[in-house]
Design a protein around this nucleic acid. Structure first.
Length: 323
DNA sequence: AGGATATGAGCGAGCTGTTC
DNA sequence: GAACAGCTCGCTCATATCCT
């Protein structure tokens, strides 16, 4: 394993200590001692877990162990085995430790942070190189966490979104640096009327009830609020459309429904459904919006901070330009 | 119900090998 | 030889499962 000149270091902070999580050669590494520290167990415990993991064939030793030269406390240089994130998480599962759970939560939260607000990492301007690193880190963590499937359903959805759209990050960054024009998009042909929306929701509801995925409460709403959202999307200012392109309109429709949650139940599903209906009405089909990414997108919007609305809207519009 | 047994997780001592 | 990394062994403790 060749040494990386500038290893990226994430710091997992704990109340009384912290661990430097090294990111070298596109993966994350911890030594046996660091894992012992992380999970608050004796080294022998970690050692035995590691052996069991490899013995039982859960992971293959050669594919997860790297040998780095490390300077120890005595200033001497030792060759120390480092274990990648897959292994760390596997050990975390076996170790009966609150720290193990905390570490997994931290890793998941870190991903969300990157996605929702990380674009302005510490308010610093992101260089092209820095961006590449963030993308690498995201891909690595997301892939590993996904393959370990230790995260809850919500987390898994957010992760799949990250994976699908890590490529769009550079576009988002360029936005912030005013290097990229807002895509012009196409003008919308016709608005979505309340009656059309109502009919669509009704159809969706009966379908969902048939497969027992919706309660009778699903889709109930105050008419005025939904009409208000549909009107907002189409609103004009001094004769000009506030959201000129159909992409912007669709993005706002999706955002408003999920964020304003006018429906007693099923806002994310209805929002996504109306989003697609709106696009279909404009004669637009987008291969990039598959089922999984739509679910993820809806979850991301629901989870996002309202102050990040513009970023989320940009993200959605960017997805159009990629398809 | 409750005693016996099995399993898994933890700790520490002590061992080997590495590096200087 | 000293300090360190990592492994094995024997022990304890907690929990789960089985048996009467």
């Amino acid at each position: 394993m060749e040494a990386d000149k500038s290893p990226q270091i994430l710091i997992y902070k704990m109340k009384d200590a912290h661990i430097d999580v090294q990111i070298k050669s596109e993966t994350v590494w911890l030594s046996l001692s660091q894992m012992a520290q992380l999970f608050e167990r004796d080294k022998s415990v970690i050692s035995r877990h590691l052996n069991n993991i490899f013995k039982e064939g859960e992971l293959e030793r050669k594919s997860v162990v790297a040998n780095f030269a490390t300077t120890a406390a005595d200033r001497k240089i030792y060759k120390v085995d480092y274990y990648n994130l897959d292994t760390i998480i596997s050990v975390g599962y076996r170790v009966n430790s609150k720290r193990g759970i905390q570490f997994r939560q931290w890793a998941t939260q870190k991903l969300k942070d990157y996605l929702i607000q990380g674009y302005s990492l510490n308010q610093q301007k992101i260089t092209h190189e820095g961006l590449k690193k963030v993308q690498k880190t995201l891909n690595l963590l997301a892939k590993t966490l996904q393959s370990q499937s230790f995260i809850d359903e919500k987390g898994a959805d957010v992760l799949s979104l990250i994976l699908s759209y890590s490529k769009t990050w550079s576009l988002l960054f360029k936005y912030d640096e005013n290097e990229l024009e807002i895509p012009k998009g196409f003008p919308a042909k016709s608005a979505l009327t309340y009656e059309e929306a109502l009919e669509a929701i009704h159809d969706l509801k009966s379908q969902l009830i048939e497969c027992e995925e919706a309660s009778p409460l699903f889709g109930q709403h105050p008419r005025k609020q939904v009409e208000g959202i549909l009107g907002n999307v189409e609103q004009t200012f001094e004769g000009q459309s506030l959201y000129p392109s159909l992409q912007e309109k669709a993005a706002h429709l999706l955002y408003f429904i999920i964020k304003d949650h006018p429906f007693s139940d099923g806002n994310k599903r209805i929002g996504t459904f109306l989003f697609l209906l709106y696009l279909r009405k404009q004669g637009v089909t987008l291969t990039i919006f598959n089922n999984a990414t739509l679910v993820s997108l809806a979850l991301l919007i629901a989870e996002s901070n309202p102050t990040d609305k513009e970023i989320i809207i940009r993200l959605i519009i960017n997805l159009f330009t990629l398809s």
